[in-house]
Simulated assay, not measured.
Amino acid sequence: MDQQTPQPDGVENRVCSGCGAVAEGAPPTWICSVENGARRYFCDSCARENLRAIESRLDSAWW
């Protein structure tokens, strides 16, 4: 359980699935969610706005 999830090679930019913000690399304040087998990244602003839904493990389509 303590294993790191491997990152796809060559991916430099992350795009927020909520607002579309772009960041280089993997910012430490962004979160990664796996929904239906696909990775989704959310910026700190979107994550902060939807914290309760994220902690409840609701899919982003719900919030």
Rank of each mutant, 00 (worst) to 15 (best):
residue 27 P to T: 01
residue 43 C to W: 00
residue 52 R to W: 08
residue 4 Q to C: 13
residue 7 Q to D: 13
residue 32 C to K: 04
residue 24 E to P: 15
residue 53 A to K: 01
residue 3 Q to D: 10
residue 55 E to F: 02
residue 4 Q to I: 10
residue 35 E to P: 09
residue 60 S to R: 07
residue 63 W to R: 10
residue 50 N to W: 03
residue 21 A to E: 10
residue 22 V to L: 11
residue 3 Q to A: 13
residue 7 Q to N: 12
residue 60 S to V: 06
residue 47 A to F: 01
residue 57 R to T: 11
residue 58 L to R: 09
residue 28 P to T: 08
residue 43 C to G: 03
residue 55 E to S: 03
residue 1 M to A: 15
residue 19 C to I: 09
residue 47 A to I: 03
residue 45 S to W: 05
residue 42 F to C: 01
residue 57 R to P: 06
residue 63 W to N: 12
residue 41 Y to E: 04
residue 2 D to G: 10
residue 31 I to L: 01
residue 2 D to R: 04
residue 43 C to D: 06
residue 60 S to A: 12
residue 44 D to V: 14
residue 33 S to R: 11
residue 45 S to V: 10
residue 43 C to I: 05
residue 12 E to A: 12
residue 11 V to Q: 14
residue 30 W to K: 03
residue 3 Q to L: 14
residue 23 A to H: 04
residue 14 R to W: 15
residue 14 R to C: 15
residue 31 I to H: 04
residue 13 N to D: 15
residue 40 R to D: 06
residue 15 V to W: 12
residue 26 A to C: 13
residue 44 D to W: 06
residue 11 V to K: 15
residue 42 F to I: 06
residue 52 R to I: 05
residue 52 R to Q: 14
residue 43 C to F: 03
residue 50 N to L: 05
residue 42 F to E: 00
residue 54 I to W: 00
residue 31 I to M: 01
residue 5 T to V: 13
residue 37 G to W: 03
residue 15 V to F: 13
residue 31 I to K: 00
residue 58 L to Y: 11
residue 3 Q to H: 08
residue 56 S to I: 09
residue 28 P to G: 02
residue 6 P to F: 05
residue 26 A to R: 11
residue 16 C to G: 07
residue 41 Y to I: 05
residue 54 I to D: 00
residue 33 S to Q: 12
residue 44 D to I: 11
residue 14 R to N: 15
residue 14 R to A: 15
residue 17 S to L: 01
residue 46 C to F: 01
residue 63 W to A: 11
residue 6 P to L: 04
residue 59 D to Q: 12
residue 26 A to Y: 11
residue 7 Q to G: 07
residue 32 C to I: 07
residue 50 N to P: 05
residue 61 A to S: 06
residue 36 N to K: 11
residue 32 C to E: 03
residue 23 A to L: 05
residue 46 C to Y: 00
residue 48 R to E: 08
residue 14 R to P: 13
residue 5 T to F: 14
residue 44 D to Y: 09
residue 61 A to C: 06
residue 51 L to C: 09
residue 1 M to L: 14
residue 12 E to Q: 12
residue 56 S to V: 09
residue 58 L to S: 08
residue 31 I to W: 00
residue 40 R to Y: 04
residue 1 M to Y: 13
residue 39 R to K: 09
residue 50 N to A: 02
residue 8 P to W: 02
residue 27 P to Q: 02
residue 17 S to E: 07
residue 51 L to T: 10
residue 51 L to N: 04
residue 48 R to N: 06
residue 9 D to E: 12
residue 25 G to F: 02
residue 3 Q to F: 14
residue 26 A to Q: 03
residue 55 E to K: 06
residue 53 A to R: 03
residue 22 V to M: 12
residue 26 A to S: 11
residue 5 T to K: 09
residue 61 A to Y: 05
residue 6 P to G: 02
residue 45 S to Y: 06
residue 32 C to R: 07
residue 61 A to F: 09
residue 48 R to P: 04
residue 11 V to F: 14
residue 33 S to Y: 04
residue 33 S to L: 15
residue 59 D to K: 12
residue 23 A to R: 01
residue 40 R to A: 05
residue 11 V to H: 10
residue 42 F to W: 07
residue 40 R to I: 07
residue 35 E to H: 10
residue 24 E to I: 13
residue 3 Q to K: 10
residue 42 F to V: 05
residue 54 I to L: 02
residue 14 R to D: 15
residue 30 W to P: 03
residue 54 I to R: 00
residue 57 R to H: 12
residue 43 C to M: 03
residue 40 R to H: 15
residue 17 S to T: 11
residue 29 T to G: 00
residue 48 R to F: 08
